[in-house]
């Protein structure tokens, strides 16, 4: 197959548009957090009051507003923010300057530290959660979907699709709490939540701690993927090339997997990429339900504490993951479907 120039051009094109997209996202995120409140009537002092605590006087608040730059024109503020992303910036904490190295996603005045290191600390938790769950839901969802499609109308099909319907309908805090109360508190098979062991320390404990969150999260997604796979398989198994594969005398297993599933999986690749990107930005409900110290939980705490820079940081990280996921999906599409590659 090689890597013809068309693929290279396609790659470069996608990369450039990803960078442009990221730039637009930062602008939009910035506008949401800093411009909209001002348009909504909040003064620079109102914004600053969130950073100094409730006990501060008006003069102190105003001083903070000037120090944080909230009184500057909006484009100067965005320039400073963008500069922080690219080159890093220094934040005056009252006691002195604290450096926030590039890429600076923001600096929390409440906990007095840059946001990014916090996020990087918590990323492994969210990644472990997402990766494990993704593995389970792909395995469960796709195999269920294939079997359902092949046994269309049978008892297995109807049972699977009813379960899938329940899966997509039930909220995760319900299935999560239910499984916690049964498997952890009742039977004592799984970890009770709230703990996380890094993989490099003890892989078994890592899996033990995450097992229930994985299953709960995977159940939700597997349900959707089972339905998608089933619909895709029903369509592709009626294609002419399936009849050709059978006419060649291939084994039914090869017909289903190599010819049917191969084609049916293409749209699933797209959706999987986006789902995974979204999850890496924080599995908020799952992490909260199981008290996992991931990015989602971090975001929830930041919102509760009114810690705007942290929320902004999480938002931008999440957006980054989605853009990357999009990019990967586009490239993967070119790998999966030769018609994209060679057109």
């Amino acid at each position: 197959m090689g890597l013809p120039t068309t693929v290279f051009a396609y790659l470069v094109k996608r990369l450039i548009s990803a960078v442009v997209l990221l730039f637009i996202i930062t602008a939009v995120v910035f506008a949401i957090f800093f411009l909209l409140p001002r348009l909504g009537g909040a003064s620079a002092d109102d914004l600053a009051s969130r950073y100094v605590g409730k006990s501060a006087g008006a003069a102190q608040i105003h001083e903070t507003a000037v120090r944080l730059g909230f009184t500057d024109p909006i484009w100067v503020q965005y320039g400073r923010f963008a500069k922080g992303l690219v080159a890093g910036s220094d934040y005056y904490t009252g006691a002195g300057y604290d450096h926030c190295p590039a890429p600076c996603l923001g600096y929390s005045f409440i906990t007095q530290n840059p946001v990014l290191p916090d996020l990087l600390d918590r990323l492994p938790v969210t990644m472990s959660l997402a990766a494990g769950a993704a593995f389970l839901w792909l395995l469960g969802g796709i195999s269920t979907g294939v079997v359902s499609a092949l046994k269309r109308g049978s008892f297995i099909d109807r049972a699977a699709m009813t379960t899938a319907l329940a899966g997509v309908s039930l909220p995760i805090f319900f299935t999560g709490l239910l499984s916690l109360s049964i498997f952890s508190y009742g039977l004592g098979w799984t970890a009770p939540g709230g703990s996380y062991t890094p993989f490099q320390e003890n892989p078994l404990m890592w899996a033990y701690d995450l097992l229930l969150p994985w299953i709960t999260l995977a159940f939700l997604y597997a349900a959707a993927y089972a339905r998608l796979t089933r619909a895709g398989m029903l369509e592709t198994m009626n294609e002419d090339y399936i009849r050709t594969a059978r006419a060649k005398g291939l084994r039914e297993h090869d017909v289903v997997v190599r010819h049917g599933l191969r084609a049916a999986l293409t749209p699933i690749v797209t959706i999987f990429g986006l789902d995974l990107g979204l999850l890496l930005g924080g599995a908020i409900l799952t992490e909260t339900t199981f008290s996992l110290p991931g990015i989602g939980q971090y975001a929830v705490q930041a919102v509760a504490n009114n810690d705007l820079p942290k929320v902004l940081g999480v938002t931008i990280l999440g957006a980054l993951f989605i853009v990357i996921a999009n990019l990967v999906v586009d490239l993967l599409y070119a790998v999966v479907d030769p018609r994209v590659r060679t057109a």
Binding site: D240, Y241, R243, A247, K248, R262, A263, D337, R339
Partner: peptide
């Protein structure tokens, strides 16, 4: 062996 009406749809698009 058998050949079919529409050779485009009768061949798998993802394989050479």
């Amino acid at each position: 062996a058998m050949i079919f009406q529409d050779p485009l749809s009768a061949m798998h698009p993802f394989y050479t």
